[in-house]
């Protein structure tokens, strides 16, 4: 029963994050300070070992971002799925339940997603759509900071669900 509640909890969180990301925290409104809430959630799920259906959430989050951004099916799906798999792999090699490790994983995950999208766009399109490096650096730092705060909030809520 707990497992079902956990799944439902993360489905609801994912939907709330998508809604916030498309209405309040979107790049059009916040520019370089925009917050990629769904990416932060996927990083959290890939670090939290008791969540088994993380792959499903990685797929769903990628699909929804693809859908709302008018991108072709697969751009964000592959980016999120691959990120999930890589983090899970790293987590099996290191002791991940530490503040600094969480910060570093969030930081490098956001850089990974930017590099992934950047390389894909440079193959298929000219690079006008890709923001300037200064935009990306500020965005990575902003998301790392907000990401850790989100981690604490989700952990609290998740813990309350279990207790």
């Amino acid at each position: 029963m707990n497992k079902i509640y956990t799944y439902l909890f993360f489905v609801v969180i994912l939907f709330i994050f998508v809604i916030f990301q498309t209405t309040l925290f979107n790049p059009g409104r916040l520019g370089r300070f925009y917050i990629d809430l769904t990416l932060i959630l996927i990083i959290y799920l890939s670090l939290t070992t008791e969540i088994r259906g993380g792959v499903f959430f990685a797929f769903l989050s990628g699909y929804m971002i693809d859908l709302f951004s008018g991108a072709s099916l697969g751009l964000y799906v592959i980016s999120r799925l691959s990120l999930f798999v890589i983090i899970r792999f790293i987590v099996t090699k290191i002791y991940s339940d530490r503040f600094i490790v969480h910060i570093l994983i969030i930081f490098f995950s956001i850089i990974y997603e930017w590099l992934f999208l950047y390389s894909l766009f440079s193959i298929n399109f000219d690079l006008n759509a890709v923001p300037a490096p200064s935009f990306i650096i500020i965005n990575v730092l902003m998301n790392t900071l907000v990401g850790y705060i989100c981690f604490i909030i989700i952990k609290e809520l998740h813990g309350k669900l279990y207790s």
Partner: peptide, 15 residues
């Protein structure tokens, strides 16, 4: 318009 694209790289969409 009730929402916009959540992506910085593919941002030219509105709902």
């Amino acid at each position: 318009s009730i929402a916009v694209s959540p992506s910085a790289i593919k941002s030219q969409v509105i709902i």
